[in-house]
Design a protein around this nucleic acid. Structure first.
Length: 753
DNA sequence: CTAGTCACTTTTTTT
DNA sequence: AAGTGACTAG
């Protein structure tokens, strides 16, 4: 038997041994959350709950399998009726939704559903755009990328498109009608072709569970115990799905859906259900609001389940105290007061390093040198470089390649979205789903002489279902004829996913050689890899779904590679040494997050998440200048407002000297140093200083008189209004921060005498 | 209609 | 650095 009381602290013990009823665990960063979940799994199985009745929803399937592996190790040697955790299902909400919808296809859909990834959606939107002639010749019309982002946001946040645009892209409001029209065309497109996008998975599952009691019962019977990790990052549908499966009545969920909250209503559990749900999360680590996640979900969990037992894990086992001090300092300035203070019993530890390279170019060199140094102390897999956005690491990647340092990049481009993989996959998709126009277009487009128009024509023939007519039309294009013959042969073959895969590659390889003559071998190797992965599957459609949902191709040898990762992809992970890049304004916080206070706060939590990934070493890089692709030169940068004004005692400060070495700076804060520099005013975000804005500002076109003058902004402080941008924005110059465009409601105008 | 070239912007984060 | 739009020659 496992000695749970010995292995866990009292709070963890309580969480791991509370097996019935709703539980909410608020787990601070590094507080042993994973450990607690693992022990609870073990405890559940020990107490006789079949492993197959436990559903573990996490943010990646990798996180789920990792937990299950560790649980299996824990229970090895303990003989149990059903100790095999492979029976436990775990993964994302999306993967779970697919697993149900696959068994119960929604009304109007054929049983074999194909899941679209990002680029498939863009291709589909392009198609709709052409069909509708939307925004033709209009340069101000949004790009597909942006249309996709806003349509999806509108669904996930459950707001009208207009509301979403009004909040974050009001310049697109004139196009709201056309965008909505495209959205409708896109919905029709998906349905006709039997395709689902990521959002459909969630909403169609909800629709199914609400309208078909037998499916709901099936789900509840299948999984009596539900655990949801990273609950602070669930969006409203996800929260409703979890609540439904856990036993909340469909009526209650409907009320929740229409009102957004349960005002006055008292939630009801269905009698048949167990109400066994454990939500785990940390409101201070909520970083997915951009895709509709709502922190209020975790705060209101007890309203949904009134009998909820609330457990807090507060002791930190991960980081040394100086790192926690910085984390606490970051949260201290947060506008919503998180009553949170991380502490550890670990004593000692180094202060985080605050390093100021001369430019972002030299930052890459310094980081690379530092990584070499750290590799002498830690395994490469114990070291990570984190950054705000995928492209921030490009310069570093070049350097690492030059030095021959192996690294793995997390986040950014997905392996499964590489062109050659998508090519091969589109053959497989077409074999499974003849209606999949997206795949058809991709395949046909590979053939010489076929463009978008021909493609459309051919597909129309294909839809009519006349095989001979299609063959006749394709006769003009020998490549295509071959492809079609190959596909119909494969449809009859009924191969295993792996052999299907290898036969597709065999067929596609000559084409690959023509299209990518330069790196043909590398790409072919990448393709062979997917055969390996496919061999783990019994059903080809499951394999393809996972390819879109989980990117299993990303797995590679770990341990001997450094990790480069976006902060979002670093969620839930930890390393001995963590280096954070580009802590300067415009990059971190991202320039997109400066307009609305709530976005700005999310950036702050993002930095908090990044810092709390580190166990022992934490380096923060603040380059003094950034390469500017417009001018071709470098421009001075402003340190991130999250760091300005922080006590210098939190850091060891280093400055790059002209020879490329580092000099330690003793007890001088960024802020002091900056205000010593002549002519450069500094404006710490939370306590703005008064400063005369420069007079030689570019003046905008004529604006209503009397409206210009000075104003205040909660984050940026006092600034001079330079230009009024109808209908509701101002261009304002903030001393030390430069020009910003700000929404009028966030400004307090000063009276001009 | 396709396919190639050129200039231009755009670019957060994920399922 | 990649994707997009416009333009032109076949």
């Amino acid at each position: 038997m496992i000695d749970y009381a010995k292995a866990l602290n009292p709070a963890q013990f309580e969480a791991a041994t509370t097996l019935d009823g709703p539980v909410l665990v608020i787990a601070g960063a590094g507080s042993g959350k994973t450990r607690t979940i693992i022990y609870r799994l073990a405890q559940l199985v020990e107490s006789g709950v079949p492993a197959s009745s436990i559903l573990l929803l996490t943010f990646t399937r990798k996180a789920a399998t990792e937990m299950l592996d560790r649980a299996r190790m824990l229970l090895s040697g303990v003989s149990l009726p059903d100790g095999d955790f492979s029976a436990t299902q775990g993964g994302t909400f999306h993967a779970y939704a697919y697993s149900v919808l696959r068994v119960f296809p929604p009304e109007g859909y054929a049983p074999r559903l194909t899941i679209m990834d990002n680029s498939d959606v863009l291709a589909a939107l392009q198609h709709c755009r052409e069909a509708l002639k939307a925004g033709k010749g209009d340069r101000s019309f949004p790009k597909n990328q942006s249309i996709q982002a806003h349509l999806s946001k509108s669904r996930n946040k459950e707001l009208s498109l207009e509301a979403v645009l009004g909040r974050e892209a009001s310049h697109l409001l004139p196009h709201a009608g056309a965008m909505e029209e495209m959205g409708r065309a896109y919905a029709v497109y998906k349905r006709e072709k039997n395709l689902l996008d990521y959002d459909d998975l969630l909403f169609l599952l909800e629709e199914t569970l609400l309208s078909r009691p037998e499916v709901l019962s099936w789900c509840r019977a299948r999984h009596s115990h539900l655990m949801v990790d990273e609950y602070q990052d669930t969006n409203p549908v996800q929260a409703r799905l979890a609540a439904l499966v856990a036993g909340l009545s469909p009526e209650t969920v409907r009320a929740l859906k229409s009102a957004g909250t349960l005002a006055g209503e008292s939630p009801r559990l269905d009698r048949e259900s167990s109400g066994n749900i454990m939500a785990v999360g940390d409101d201070a680590q909520s970083i997915y609001a951009f895709r509709g996640a709502d922190v209020r979900n975790i705060l209101r969990f007890p309203d949904l389940f009134p009998q909820t037992r609330l457990i807090r894990l507060e002791e930190n086992y991960r980081s040394v105290q100086p790192i926690l001090d910085l984390g606490n300092a970051i949260l201290k300035h947060a506008s919503e007061g998180f009553a949170k203070r991380l502490y550890t019993r670990r004593s000692g530890g180094l202060k985080p390093n605050l390093i100021r390279p001369i430019s972002d170019r030299s930052q890459a060199a310094l980081v690379a040198a530092r990584l070499v140094e750290l590799c002498r102390i830690y395994q490469p897999g114990e070291i990570a470089v984190l950054f705000r956005a995928g492209f921030h690491s490009y310069a570093l990647e070049v350097h690492l390649n030059k030095l021959g340092l192996r690294f793995r990049k997390h986040g950014g481009i997905r392996y499964a979205e590489a062109a050659h993989i998508k090519d091969a996959v589109s053959f497989m998709r077409l074999i499974l789903n003849p209606l999949d126009f997206t795949a058809f277009a991709r395949m046909a487009g590979l053939c010489q002489g076929i463009g978008p128009k021909t493609c459309l024509k051919l597909h129309r023939i294909l839809l009519a279902g006349d095989e001979t007519a299609l063959a006749a039309a394709a006769a003009r294009y020998p490549d295509l004829s071959e492809d079609l013959a190959f596909i119909s042969a494969m449809r009859l073959a009924d191969d295993s996913p792996a052999s299907l895969c290898s036969r597709v590659i065999e067929h596609y390889a000559p084409r690959l050689r023509l299209v990518y003559p330069d790196d043909y071998p590398r790409r072919l190797q990448g393709l062979e890899q997917i055969v390996q992965i496919a061999s783990a599957y019994e059903d080809a459609d499951l394999f393809l779904a996972d390819l879109s949902l989980d990117d299993p191709l990303r797995e590679e040898a770990e341990g001997d590679s450094l990790i480069l990762s976006t902060i979002h992809s670093a969620k839930g992970l930890e390393w001995s040494a963590v280096l954070i890049l580009d802590l300067v304004e415009d990059r971190f916080p991202s320039r997109h997050a400066l307009i609305r206070p709530e976005d700005y706060e999310e950036e702050r939590r993002l930095l908090y998440v990044a810092c709390t990934r580190a166990r022992e070493v934490l380096d923060l890089y603040v380059p003094s200048s950034l390469y500017d692709r417009n001018s071709g030169g470098t421009i001075p940068s402003v340190p991130s407002p999250f760091l300005r004004g922080m006590s210098p005692s939190l850091f060891s400060e280093w400055r790059e000297n002209p020879t490329g070495g580092l000099t330690e700076k003793i007890r001088a804060s960024l802020r002091r140093e900056e205000s010593l520099a002549p002519g450069k005013a500094t404006l710490p975000p939370e306590e703005p200083e008064e400063g005369e804005p420069p007079v030689d500002l570019p003046d905008g076109p004529a604006s209503p008189p009397g409206r210009l003058g000075f104003c205040r902004h909660r984050i940026f402080g006092r600034g001079k209004i330079v230009q009024f941008l109808p209908p509701d924005r101002y261009r304002v110059h903030f001393p030390g921060l430069g020009l910003k465009v700000v929404l009028a409601p966030y400004l307090i105008l000063e009276q001009t005498p």
